[in-house]
Design a protein around this nucleic acid. Structure first.
Lengths: 130, 130
DNA sequence: ATAACTGCAAATCTTTTGCTTACAG
DNA sequence: CTGTAAGCAAAAGATTTGCAGTTAT
């Protein structure tokens, strides 16, 4: 456990929104200026492997980069509005049930899940019909 | 509708597994040798926009590339075995129900969904316990 | 002490773009 | 004809890697 890792983890925990590597790097540098991009990638890799962090694509709304979030207790769906870019989270017992069903019916042991939805959020639907 | 597009679409339809851009390009070139990588990217972009093709990440098992499949009538989950790389598909009324619930409860209009699961398939679980 | 981690720079992989020529409708 | 698409080559964006020096345990 190094200073850099601690800073990166804290930064992610305190973040209000999903961070991509560049944003995470920028925020982390406010605390630990020397920190390098490669360290961010290597740390994320580790954290993913340990199941502490989830990787998101958010339907690649802005290029191909990935976003990261501290793994939540309860998995949730990410609803990405393709119009305004807003991301909502949604969790439901139905999702848990679906996961259970998958394991029961296929024997697949689930380690990570990623359910992303692209579409139009209610705000955009109301402001501009169609 | 150009020859290249026709070839790309046919190639995807006939493919038995999920293709990444390089594989798709290689297969398409067997029919239409001159076809360019950029054309593949541009065509996929169009097809995605028209909702004819879905993009997958398959949990980034092999690098950051994307995979593509002709949009199925019924959405399905992709179960990616992190050990052997096999990808299973799974569909269930529960998934449909979950999507309905999302729309009802959040007012979000769903255009695309991507549910990917990473873990260990039953074969790998049985061959090597633990 | 020593194994693991960092910063730096360069490399790699994937995707995008500008431009000119070619083709479909 | 005329707009859209293709091919080519170069650029951009994201991530990975080799290496030498540093740090955690």
């Amino acid at each position: 456990m190094t200073t850099q890792r601690r800073v990166l983890i804290e930064t992610m925990q305190e973040a209000k929104e999903h961070l991509d590597v560049s944003s995470l790097l920028a925020l982390a540098r406010k605390r630990e200026p020397g920190i390098d991009r490669a360290t961010v990638y290597r740390t994320i890799e580790k954290l993913k492997k340990f199941g502490l962090v989830d990787e998101l694509d958010l339907m690649h709304m802005n290029g191909e980069k990935h976003y990261y979030e501290v793994k939540p207790k309860r998995d949730h769906v990410h609803l990405a509005c393709l119009q305004c870019g807003q991301v909502e989270e949604f969790s439901s017992p139905l999702f848990e049930q679906l996961k259970r069903e998958i394991t029961e019916q296929t024997g697949f042991e689930i380690l990570v899940t990623r359910l992303e939805v692209g579409g139009r959020c209610s705000v955009c639907r109301n402001s501009n019909k169609r």
